[in-house]
């Protein structure tokens, strides 16, 4: 029996008094890959931000249960330590802080939280070098400051690299495909696929079907005007690619 990881029920939320999510329902269980697709402004990034705990959003109704407990009550860092990971659409640069140092601090916070011993420098490097292979990263990557001066592709690869090191239970990929050329897209997708296991889950947020040629979802959801208006298998993504979002949005308006 597959355990549910994330259960979102009738979520209503917004920013600065403007409601963006208007009764969203989503249920993700172990071993599943879900894709949430939708036109610009449908609320995709808001969903990602709220799950990660970004400041400035207000939840007015509904529930988000993660691993059986209320996610909303947790601070962003506790969510991370509990296994929620957000791969950012626009990863920020942190000049002066080298990637090794940053990632070691992050991993040890997660380990401490879960009652594991902290890794020392040698143990950490061994682990990290293994994970770097997954993303085909050059050696000097670790010595560079976090995202500083990285190209768009490098930043995205760094996100998935961090995901590989932190080994989350629920990974949320917010438009990870945006700004990637086809080669980078393949590397990143292959990385994500390698990290898939029977006891974790991935929520892939994307505008384009293209990413789903490489990361094959078990479920595809269409987000429109703050709600999931249609769910289906991976064939739904193909249909969207062919026909665009308009027809679903219209159908939704007619039934509403």
């Amino acid at each position: 029996m597959k355990q549910p990881i994330l259960e979102i029920t009738n979520l209503r939320a917004g920013v600065e008094g403007k409601e963006i999510l208007k009764g969203l329902n989503l249920r993700i269980s172990e071993g599943e890959v879900h894709a949430v697709m939708g036109p610009n402004g449908s609320g995709k990034s808001t969903l990602a931000s709220i799950l990660a705990g970004r400041d400035g959003y207000t939840i007015t109704d509904g529930q988000i249960v993660y691993g059986g407990v209320d996610l909303v009550e947790m601070s962003p860092e506790v969510r991370a330590r509990e296994g929620v990971f957000l791969a950012f659409q626009y990863p920020v640069e942190i000049p002066g802080v080298n990637t090794t140092y940053f990632l070691k601090a992050a991993l040890n916070e997660v380990r401490k939280h879960n009652g594991l011993s902290e890794l020392d420098a040698m143990e950490f490097l061994t682990l990290v070098k293994e994970k770097m292979k997954i993303l085909h990263l050059p050696e000097d990557f670790l010595k560079r400051p976090v995202n500083a001066g990285f190209s768009g592709g490098e930043k995205k690869r760094n996100e998935i690299f961090q995901m590989a090191v932190l080994d989350p239970k629920l990974a949320i990929l917010d438009e990870t495909d945006s700004g990637l050329d086809i080669d980078a897209l393949k590397v990143v997708s292959a990385g994500v696929n390698k990290l898939k296991r029977a006891d974790n889950a991935q929520l892939v947020i994307t505008h384009y079907q293209r990413l789903l040629d490489y990361i094959v979802p078990d479920f595809v959801h269409v987000l429109s005007n703050g709600r999931i208006v249609r769910s289906g298998g991976k064939e739904l993504a193909l249909e969207l690619e062919e026909r665009g979002y308009d027809w679903i949005v219209k159908e939704d308006l007619q039934t509403a």
């Binding site: 400041d55 962003p76 991370a80 916070e109």
Partner: peptide, 27 residues
């Protein structure tokens, strides 16, 4: 030091004060 940088650190499990220290020390 932007809120975005702090949130980025938070979302990796690092507390705000530790994030500030990390950024300042890096600087």
């Amino acid at each position: 030091i932007g809120e975005d940088q702090i949130f980025y650190c938070n979302s990796r499990g690092i507390e705000t004060q530790d994030a500030v220290n990390m950024i300042v020390n890096g600087f």
